[in-house]
Design a protein around this nucleic acid. Structure first.
Lengths: 219, 219
DNA sequence: AGCTTTTCTGATTTTGTAGTCAGAAATTGG
DNA sequence: CCAATTTCTGACTACAAAATCAGAAAAGCT
């Protein structure tokens, strides 16, 4: 029962399929779709190249299957955001940003792939929007709009704020190679400082006076 | 005298070479190095594919030559930053961010290429660091460090602040296709609002109380 | 105009990679 | 332990794109 790419029982095949997915996710995120070769994935996964075509119909299917491994992560995030739906919108945003940072450190592939495909456009971006990120991002924009309406956030377009917050949050994570080349510094070493910087300085910068007071009270 | 890729006089050859460079820069920034084909560039530039190999030794040389077209832009930016070297560091940072935004709108290719190569690492990133961006970015980090020392900026690592500010600034510009797909909105339409958001909310978020007062006075 | 140099093209080679297929090896179920 | 099924490999094809080269066309010069 090859070519499905779904989560079957714990058979031998599913084990290697999972290994292939993991390697593929890693490589796709570091290099982008085109630079990755089936042969390279096969080698890193310790199988022959045709084995990939046994488990996954073609390169595009493998890419999607690798992405689906992140769907559970996103869905859990959406669940946790929704769980805070009764809190004030500003609190929801902070929760969402905390979760986003957590996910970005644990699954750096996600942010890099969004950056790669989000710049290029095309069918892979549309797939990501439809199956992984669209609903989440539109929900976040809605929350940001509420926070603006409540007078807690500066009145900028919510979509731009959400995307700017996210790109700022993953900036140095995505650009780890650049940070090393230009500054010879390792970002992952200063994770707590970075998270604090994003939450306090960047998210903090979008708060109105009222929002700042509300946040101080909440602590 | 082929294969040099330098700026000669206004001969027939240099005209087509320039056309090729322009097309190449455009395509490289939208698609990344690998997705771009010599044939595609040739077609868009209205020449045959071997003509590219006449003017540029190979694909890598063409890429570098196209990048060098941006060097004048960066050098002018560095010059303008240096011209403000006597002002307080916070003012220099604001000037630098304004220039960065200006360049990002005028040459969106630059930010996209930095994002692409800065995530992937490799020799093209090292080339960019050495010939285009390294000096500028290290200079900015030094200015940020001064601003921290002066008590105007929150005490986060200057390198992280600089890169975070830049990624935040180009976020929605780079991710224009994503903004369209997910939110059906056109970023370029709201350029002034975006620039204001970056300067006031994002850069503003990094200011200390003292920094905020200093900035209000300066106006 | 006639010669030289620059600029470019058509045809071709070379290379790297996606995808196919027959059959071997391993695994599973009876 | 044997047969059926799943899993995987080696050898191969197909193809797209980079790079090469001999020579044609164009531009420049005297």
């Amino acid at each position: 029962m090859p070519h499905d790419g779904e989560w079957a029982a714990t058979t031998k095949g599913e084990a290697t399929a999972a290994r292939i997915r993991a390697v593929a996710l890693d490589q796709f995120s570091q290099l982008g779709f085109e630079r990755v070769t089936m042969g390279g994935i096969a080698k890193a996964a310790g199988v022959s190249q045709p084995a990939l075509h046994y488990h996954f119909e073609d390169k595009a299917h493998l890419w999607r299957s690798a992405m689906l491994g992140l769907r559970a992560v996103i869905q859990e995030e959406e669940r946790l955001i929704e769980a805070a739906a009764d809190a004030p919108p500003l609190t929801q945003l902070r929760v969402a940003m905390r979760l986003f940072l957590q996910i970005s450190w644990k699954h750096p592939a996600l942010g890099r792939i969004v950056a790669l495909e989000g710049m290029a456009g095309g069918e892979r971006l549309e797939w990501l929007d439809r199956h992984l990120l669209g609903a989440r991002n539109r929900r976040l924009a809605a929350i940001a709009a509420e926070a603006v309406a409540a007078g807690d956030l500066l009145p900028y377009p919510p979509e731009q704020m959400v995307v700017t917050l996210q790109t700022a949050a993953v900036g140095v994570i995505n650009l780890a190679p650049l940070m090393r080349t230009t500054f010879d510094c390792d970002v992952a070493a200063a994770r707590e400082i970075h998270d604090d910087m994003i939450l306090e300085a960047v998210l903090g910068g979008f708060l109105t006076e009222k929002g700042r007071r509300a946040q101080e009270e909440a602590q």
